[in-house]
Design a protein around this nucleic acid. Sequence first.
DNA 1: GTAGAACGTGCAAACGTTTGCCCAAACAGG
DNA 2: CCTGTTTGGGCAAACGTTTGCACGTTCTAC
Lengths: 334, 334
Amino acid sequence: MKKPSSLIDVARRAKVNISTVSRTINQTGKIGPETQARVMKAMRELGYKPNRVARRLRARDASTHLLGLIIPNIQNIFFADLARGVEDVAYKNNYAVLLCNYDEDEAKERFYLDVLQSESVDGIILPPIHETDPAVLQVVRNGTPVVCVDRSLSSGNLDKVEVDNHTGALKAVEHIIARGHRRIGLIGGPADSSTGRERLRGYKDAHAQAGLALKSDLIRFGDYKQDSGETIAHELLSLPDPPTALFVCNGLMTAGALETIAALGLKIPKQIALVGFDELLLADVFNPPLTVVRQPAYEVGKCAAELLLKRIEDPTRPATSLKLLPELIIRKSC
Amino acid sequence: MKKPSSLIDVARRAKVNISTVSRTINQTGKIGPETQARVMKAMRELGYKPNRVARRLRARDASTHLLGLIIPNIQNIFFADLARGVEDVAYKNNYAVLLCNYDEDEAKERFYLDVLQSESVDGIILPPIHETDPAVLQVVRNGTPVVCVDRSLSSGNLDKVEVDNHTGALKAVEHIIARGHRRIGLIGGPADSSTGRERLRGYKDAHAQAGLALKSDLIRFGDYKQDSGETIAHELLSLPDPPTALFVCNGLMTAGALETIAALGLKIPKQIALVGFDELLLADVFNPPLTVVRQPAYEVGKCAAELLLKRIEDPTRPATSLKLLPELIIRKSC
DNA sequence: GTAGAACGTGCAAACGTTTGCCCAAACAGG
DNA sequence: CCTGTTTGGGCAAACGTTTGCACGTTCTAC
C-alpha cells in the first residue's frame, strides 16, 4: 500500500508550513498569491489528495458533505426510487450519499447506524425499523440530524416525510368495493410496522364505511417480500370460500400474488380482481394493466433530502412533518 | 452536538491508562481480569463507542471491515440483485458495505472512489465506467483491493467477475433466428461499454452463422435506461420496413420497448417478437411471458465479494477472472 | 515620524486512537 | 537470597488534519 502524500510532503516541497498549505486548500486565511501558486504546484506534482479521515477527526463539525441513507431492502423498487430522490438532491447540493441496506435486520440496522455515525456523516435518512427504535433515538440524541422516511418514529419531534398510507389503502379498498366486491382478501404488511398498520386501517375503514363486516380469514400479513405474497395469495385463494378481490400491500408481494394467480390459471379481473400498493415496472403494460396505488417514492426521497439539508444548515429549526399523498391509478385489474 | 465519550473518559472512570482501555477492547495484550471488568463497567456506564475515524487514522492498515460498492444505477434490478449478493456474503463475514450510486456519471464515480478511499474501506467492488478508467486504475495502484464486476477493465490483472455477454446474446439471437425471423432489431447498450459491445458481437455473430446480412438500420444504441428503450423501439417500429423481432440489451430498456409496443397496439409475438436481456420482476407472468436471457446478477455479486474478501486476506494472490453464464429462458414472447 | 492596522506566515495544540517500549511487581529456579 | 522471566499496565509517539495565537513586515493615517 503506497503511502499517499500528506500535507507535510506538500509543505516541504513548497517550502512553507503545513498550515499554509491547509489554508491554501481551504481558502481560509490570507495567503500571498505567489505562495499559493507554489503550494498549488507542489500539490499537483505530488498528486496530493486531502485525507478525509484526518480532516474529520480534527474538525468533527466540519461538514464532510456526506449523507447516510439506510434502507430495508434495496430490491424493493420503492426504496430504489426513494434512494434516487435522495441522491439527486444530494448531488445537486454537492453531497454524496452512503447507502446501507439492512434487510429488515435489526442488528444490521444498528451496525450501519454505528458506521455512519462514526463516519461522521452530516445527517442520516432512514425508515426506522419500528416505532420505538432505541438505536435511532440514540443517534438523534447524539445530535446527528436524522430524518425519518416512510415509517414513523413515535417519540421525538424529528423531521419526517411519509406517505399517507391510510388514505391510499382507503381509496383502494373503496374502489374495490365500488366494483362490487364483498370478499376482499388482504395481503398486509408486517403488523409491527407503521405502514402495515396504516394500510390495514384503511382496509378496515373502507369496510366500515360500506357497512361490510370484516372476515378475519381474509386478513393476512406478509413481510413485504415476494415469497410471502405468493404464499399468502395461495392460502387465500384455496379457502373454501375464497375472496373475489385481493388488496396487496406492497409491490413485491403483488408480484408474488400475480405468480400464484398465474399458476392457478385464474383470470384477472373476472375470477380474481387485484389492486396493489406500489407502482411496478411493467404494471401499465401488463395484461390486464394493473390497478395500483402509486407511492411517490422519488418525491419522498427528494423531500427527505431537502429537509435534511435544511436541518444540517440550521439545526435549531423546528421539525417538519410531511405527508405525501399516494395516487390510485385505476387500470384494468380491478 | 453532545460530545461522545472517548477512551480518555473511560480510562479516567476506570482509573487506568487509555492504553489499557484500548487493549481491553481489542483483546490485545495481557490485562488482568479484574481490571478488564472495571474497564468494561466504565464503558457500559458511559455508553462508550469507539471512534472509527480516529481508529482508522491511527492504523491505516487496521481492517475496518468495510467494503465499498459503486454501481451505475440502483434502479436497474440487475445491480440491485448484484448488490444483494455482495451484501449477503459481506455480512456473513462481518463486513458492512457502503453503496454508492453514480448514475453513469464519471465525475460522480470519481468522487465516490475518492470518498471510499479516504474512508479507508478494505476493498471496492465496481463496474468500471469504461475500459480504461484512469480513476479506477489509480485506486488499484494505491493498493486498495478492487474487483471489477459486469464490465471489464482493459489494463491490469485484477480480480473480476463478468457475465458471458457474447454467449448470452448469441444464444438469444440464434433463438430468434430459429423462430424464423430475418429482420431483427437491436436495441443495444452504449457502444463504449464492454457489455454493450459484447452483446452486439453476439448479435452479429448469430447473423453471420446464419448467413444473414446485417441491416445497419436495425441496429441502435441506448443508454440502458427505460426511456431509450421506448424511444428506440419507436424508431425501429416506424421504419418503412420494420423488424419482426426485437433483441433488447437490458431490462430497463426492455420495459421501455414494451411500453412502445403496447402503445402501438402490437401483438407479441405475432406482430413483433421480443427477447430481452435481464430477468424482470413480472416477466414470467407477463402476457405473453417474456423470453429473456437471465443474468446471474446475485451470483455475480456473491462471487465478487468472495473474491474481494480473499484478496483482502491475501493481497498477493494471483488475480482470478470469472465468467458466469447467462441463461436463455424461453417463454412465449419469441 | 510614529502608532496602529492589515497582511502573510509559522508554531503548536488538538482530535481519539493504536502500539512500541519501558518498568514495577510477582514469581520461578537455583 | 539472588537472578531471570513473566505478567500487568503506564508513557508517549504517531496518524494527517485544522486553527487559535503570535510574530514580523509593510501599509495607512495622522
